[in-house]
Nucleic acid binder design. Sequence first.
DNA 1: AAGAAAATGAGAGCGATGCTCTCTAGTTTG
DNA 2: CAAACTAGAGAGCATCGCTCTCATTTTCTT
Lengths: 233, 233
Amino acid sequence: MGAIRTARERARAELTQEIKNAARRQLGEVGAQQLSLRAVARELGMASSALYRYFPNRDELLTALIIDAYEALGDAAEAADATPPPGDLRARWCTIHHAVRDWARAHPHEYALIYGSPVPGYAAPQTTIAPAGRVPLLLLRLAHRAHTEGALHPAFDGPPLPPTLAGQAAAVADLMDVPLPEPDLTRVMVAWIQLFGTISFELFGQLTGGADPADAFFHHTTDQMADLVGLPH
Amino acid sequence: MGAIRTARERARAELTQEIKNAARRQLGEVGAQQLSLRAVARELGMASSALYRYFPNRDELLTALIIDAYEALGDAAEAADATPPPGDLRARWCTIHHAVRDWARAHPHEYALIYGSPVPGYAAPQTTIAPAGRVPLLLLRLAHRAHTEGALHPAFDGPPLPPTLAGQAAAVADLMDVPLPEPDLTRVMVAWIQLFGTISFELFGQLTGGADPADAFFHHTTDQMADLVGLPH
DNA sequence: AAGAAAATGAGAGCGATGCTCTCTAGTTTG
DNA sequence: CAAACTAGAGAGCATCGCTCTCATTTTCTT
């Protein structure tokens, strides 16, 4: 399967990559809105119509970039997660958080592509769901390990879960294969939203005039969310 | 100043409004990306070039819509805030949260315009800052009133504030004219980010397969954040 | 090995966009 | 009333996404 048989297939795979690379470069320069197939073709020295042999339309190219971005972010988070001692769950939690933020600030347009407003009339295809779940999965597993070690002690209980929410949380636990009690899982979801909410606000300028630069605030909320979730010190 | 002198000025003011209205209608139908000046001009029965007498370019039109959207959201939040008994701070908190979510779901494209990824190469002009602060200001004032009544009791303290963050929080308190202790103000910021982070995730499809529909989750986190901030029951 | 089939790339072209320029008709101001 | 200003229309430019056709090259089948 991995082996590429004919020369044509090899050339096709390479050109597909080169197109994505050129597109990603332009994405970083002018943003998704201005990304133009013709400009990509120009950069590669080919006719614009030839691009349509590789991507049926502009949206499909963007979708490919979206998936790549999710994977790159997932890679960055997992690589960072491997740095601290595996048993130091809080250090791993914080390291992941900062890795996500660092990646977002290093690739703002790619971040905007996956966590900004989706292209209108564009529904995220099934293929994006799995890669999009990598970061929350990391966080869930950390909490789960703390839980199995009996070391998960949330800062406060909060209101009890209504049945609907408990059911959804159980479904997520099942889907992700992370058997965490519903209230704990819900708290991780809150922390997950806080993580990306903070980064989005920072990148999209909502923090301007408030907590900008946001380093201190981000560091603080990362810790606070670890407390909320209940990771040990 | 409010009085419009000449017939020409009156006509200009009206046409400016009609252009914005038509643009807002199209925004709701096709989204910001596809919003076309020519289509707006067509709808109004005028030449596309005539639009440029009113808005120097497409971005300026969008900026006008952005400001209107912030104001509409602020109006919705303030109107909702006036519903519960003024002394029931927790009810007001929850009502504001739900009003913001309801407005966002009723006007997803306008929400995406102000809380999605900003148009690339587009910096939010100064004129958007004040209207953008209306919702967080409401939340801050609620917390402040609870504080002056001695009724603000956060669910947990969390880590102590580093000096940088304390300074920024103090600056916000000063700017917003809400003299709230820095740790309390920081907690309100967390809740504010949680509010918009949750709505963005819901609207932009990140919750798909997890907490979707998000009613139960949203209700729960609203309450949880009220606990975190320390509003009385 | 030879011929059929499939994939690839180039070019022209369509309808549409944002925006500029020029010209005309009308309004306001001194 | 005349000069200055303003609003609108129309033509035009460069660009875009995308389609269609045609020639060339590669692969598959016999």
